[in-house]
């Protein structure tokens, strides 16, 4: 028997209407999205640029307001939360970004304690929690550095630390490794996997890199023009892709790994 899904999205739609009275046609970005994500999963969302991955992810913490449909995370009915409730709910949903989005005015410690400040923790509690998390992401020796003094990989670790500060129930990752060199990206993925295993944290991971799906995810859904065209365990989807998107991804991936010009592709 299937257990109750931890994250459950039903009939989700999102349209960008453009400016009032503008002549620009509305863009239907998400159409009838149904998705179930079990607790403790690392769930991948794949798709081409513009498919709507980021928009879908942002609907989970209502950085984007869904137009219709329902989103449930744990016991929270996300779409029906009042503004005040939403602010409290967001503390429980960590998010990390491709561009890290750290505060340049604050040191590593300052960045990680920011969410704790927002949650109203006292400074003694904050200090203890920040130490604990910096230990977890391996940045204790960089605690008083400013983001401007950190490498990309270190910045993303700070981003992860910040996202974890309030002990979230879900971590949302939007292309978190796309701006990093492959080795550092692998480190960061290892960190995410490690966190997933140690804390049992559910991770939703948006990417356009098939290696990332292969390496880190258990389940995956494929978006194409705002619709989910394929879903399943990573093994299923990778061995037997049915969507156009996934076939193209697989083909490009295999061409890249087999080497192009050596085979005499006419340049």
């Amino acid at each position: 028997m299937m257990s109750e899904p931890f994250i459950s999205i039903q009939g989700l739609n999102k349209t960008f209407w453009g400016a009032k009275r503008s002549v620009v046609a509305p863009v239907e970005v998400l159409r009838d999205i149904d998705l179930s994500i079990p607790q403790g999963d690392i769930f991948g969302i794949m798709g081409f640029s513009g498919a709507g991955k980021s928009t879908l992810l942002r609907c989970l913490n209502r950085l984007e307001e869904p137009e219709s449909g329902s989103v449930r995370i744990g016991e929270h009915d996300v779409c029906s939360l009042s503004h005040e409730q939403l602010l409290v709910f967001r503390r429980k949903i960590g998010m990390i970004f491709q561009q890290f989005n750290l505060l340049e005015a604050r040191t590593v410690v300052g960045n990680v304690s920011f969410p704790l400040e927002v949650a109203g923790q006292r400074s003694a509690e904050r200090r203890a929690r920040v130490d604990e998390i910096l230990e977890l992401v391996g940045l204790t020796d960089r605690r008083d550095f400013y983001p401007g003094q950190l490498s990309g990989g270190q910045k993303q670790r700070v981003g992860i630390a910040r996202a974890l500060a309030n002990e979230p129930i879900v971590l949302l990752s939007d292309e978190a490794t796309s701006a990093l060199d492959p080795q550092i990206a692998l480190n960061v993925l290892d960190l995410l996997i490690n966190i997933n295993q140690r804390l049992g944290l559910t991770i939703v991971l948006v990417t356009h890199q098939i290696e990332v799906i292969k390496y880190a995810c258990r389940n995956v859904a494929v978006l194409e023009n705002g619709r989910i065209v394929e879903r399943g365990s990573v093994r299923e989807v990778l061995t037997n892709p049915t969507s156009e998107t996934m076939k193209v991804f697989m083909q490009v991936n295999s061409e890249m790994t087999s080497g192009g010009w050596k085979e005499g592709a006419g340049i």
């Binding site: 503390r91 989005n101 920011f114 927002v118």
Partner: peptide, 20 residues
């Protein structure tokens, strides 16, 4: 993105202005 990141943490508008 920085404002969005702070929003994703649950920051209120005055915190977005004064702290970000």
């Amino acid at each position: 993105g920085k404002l969005e990141a702070a929003k994703s943490i649950g920051a209120r508008n005055w915190e977005l202005v004064l702290k970000v």
